[in-house]
Design a protein around this nucleic acid. Sequence first.
DNA 1: TCATAGATTAGAATTATTCTAAACTAGTTG
DNA 2: CAACTAGTTTAGAATAATTCTAATCTATGA
Lengths: 138, 138
Amino acid sequence: MAQMERRPDIAVRLKAAGLRPTRQRTQLAGLLFTGHDRHVTAESLAEESARAGIKVSLATVYNTLHQFEAAGFLRQVVVDAARSYFDTNTGDHQHFFVEDEGLLIDIPGEQIRVSGVPEAPAGLAVDRVDVVVRVKRP
Amino acid sequence: MAQMERRPDIAVRLKAAGLRPTRQRTQLAGLLFTGHDRHVTAESLAEESARAGIKVSLATVYNTLHQFEAAGFLRQVVVDAARSYFDTNTGDHQHFFVEDEGLLIDIPGEQIRVSGVPEAPAGLAVDRVDVVVRVKRP
DNA sequence: TCATAGATTAGAATTATTCTAAACTAGTTG
DNA sequence: CAACTAGTTTAGAATAATTCTAATCTATGA
Ligand SMILES: [Mn+2]
Ligand SMILES: [Mn+2]
Ligand SMILES: [Zn+2]
Ligand SMILES: [Zn+2]
């Protein structure tokens, strides 16, 4: 869902995914998909919504994040045992993770290469290859 | 902590790490470091301990896993938002993660290569590069 | 054997997330 | 437009992994 810039467009895309363009979903999509790619947690998106004057419960933020993920608008990134991140960039790319700040930074997919991945164990197929470059203050 | 096979050896290594070789720590180390490398969760290790007749609380399992990690005997692997895995293989290697089963399988470090990792953002240094190959039933 | 710093533990607390079930609303139908 | 209803939102309860508390134990050196 690269450019979900315009509101009417948002409604169309939500419908196409079988999701009613409710006020909450439309406004959350507005935060998430207007402008550049972003990485959010349920908590961070809820806080941002509150600051933006969007009235939405935390339960709905969770529901919406999962629905957007199922629709392919978001993808989950597992880097921290404590909380889940959602990424508006669903294309092929990887991440720096700044552990102390809980901050994710994109690494373009073309830039990084993983080779020598062995064949998947019998009966299994590779779903995706995730690379996390953990960085710290030296 | 590649070979912690003998009990006397375990005590020595625990002491070297500033940890008293208590019954619980010694027995948990016996489970973890005897034989091949393994991947455990707090829950799985607690269950295994119970089956083995080791009397230890879940709180102590958590404490011990974290102390062993701090001592460099274990390392944490973040692959699942729901729970934390600990790996007795602290050397350079990567993982297959079988999502449906919650199973981790080692990929030797020499086998897999990551190239094109961009320079870390200003003020930060690369701590480690984690690769997770997520596999599924096709 | 004592003293004591360190360790264990039951149970309470915390935290992220999910669930429940009641109130609401978008979209359809008449 | 009014009525209907399936889908949605939400407060609050529930869950589950993990951590904390503070009371009881134990490894160890004197
Ligand atoms: Mn989920
Ligand atoms: Mn949790
Ligand atoms: Zn990203
Ligand atoms: Zn491993």
